[in-house]
Design a protein around this nucleic acid. Structure first.
Lengths: 151, 151
DNA sequence: TCAAATAATTTGATAATCAAAGTATATTGA
DNA sequence: TCAATATACTTTGATTATCAAATTATTTGA
């Protein structure tokens, strides 16, 4: 067993848990105490620019449409998300962020980008590009794995 | 804004969502359907070798002791975890994995290591070491961030 | 036209989570 | 010594997250 595999794996597991914990605590000590980390990820999936439907966002998050409807009910009540039923097909609901939702999205995005910036700060360009390539490999592998998953 | 920062960030976000989803679905289609991904991470935190207490595991997971007690109640009922009250200090409970818990731990660990192995399969040694270094940087940054977090 | 398909929502059940209160045990200091 | 305090864990009550299945509204296709 390649010790590098173990080491990379160990870092990934810890990074994973740490990011979630830090995101949660950062939110809870900001002015957005009424947003859970799950809700934050829903806001992230709704996004700033596209006009995604309920089922598209549910698929992106890997939850059922019912789960998303409940979550969006709360986010609409708390004024982070807006629902618009389309004229074209009146069964479809497009989701978008309210002005406050957009502000929160940008703050969260900044947290992520600062985290990455700090990480690669002391690497030279070659190194950070190899890091990027490594992450791309992992990403591509995961996308392939998702395809093969028993629906 | 360095486009590399955005790109690395984008991969990280997708990787996180994908790993969670794949882990959840893989569990649900295995013989361990009664274990949620949260419970899997609790089993992971209890670990194979150390004898951690309830509060140590809660801290590792970033949840309250009450939350962990509830989760451990379920894992004991389902026969993945064992509780032992210590003689030395009878308030303290040490947590450990049952034989089935150990089996599940090893399977989950294998999933992770296969994922990493596949990722670095086509990289040469220099490249995979730089990936590792990048992850170490991210990891160290997160550990420092955790320190500074408002308790 | 109208049966089937689709998009979203609602419902009922269970798990995950916290803060606060409660229980049992250990430590400390007058 | 022993009462007050601290510690480790558990319980409780409330809220959120989740799913599968049922329901509602609308669209599509034979």
């Amino acid at each position: 067993m390649d010790p590098l595999v173990n080491e990379i794996n160990k870092y990934l597991v810890t990074i994973f848990n740490d990011v979630l914990m830090i995101e949660e605590k950062t939110l809870q000590s900001s002015r957005f105490k009424d947003v859970s980390i799950k809700e934050m990820h829903t806001i992230e999936a709704i996004g700033m620019y596209e006009q995604l439907t309920t089922s598209e966002v549910a698929k992106k998050l890997g939850v059922t449409a019912g789960t998303l409807t409940v979550s969006v009910n709360n986010l609409v009540r708390k004024n982070y998300v807006e629902r618009v039923r389309t004229d074209h097909d009146r069964r479809v609901v497009k989701l978008s962020l309210s002005p406050t939702g957009r502000l929160l999205y940008r703050l969260h995005d900044k947290f992520h980008r600062d985290m990455v910036r700090e990480t690669i700060a002391e690497m030279d360009k070659d190194q950070s590009e190899i890091l990027m390539l490594g992450l791309k490999n992992l990403h591509d592998f995961l996308e392939r794995t998702k395809e093969q998953l028993p629906k």
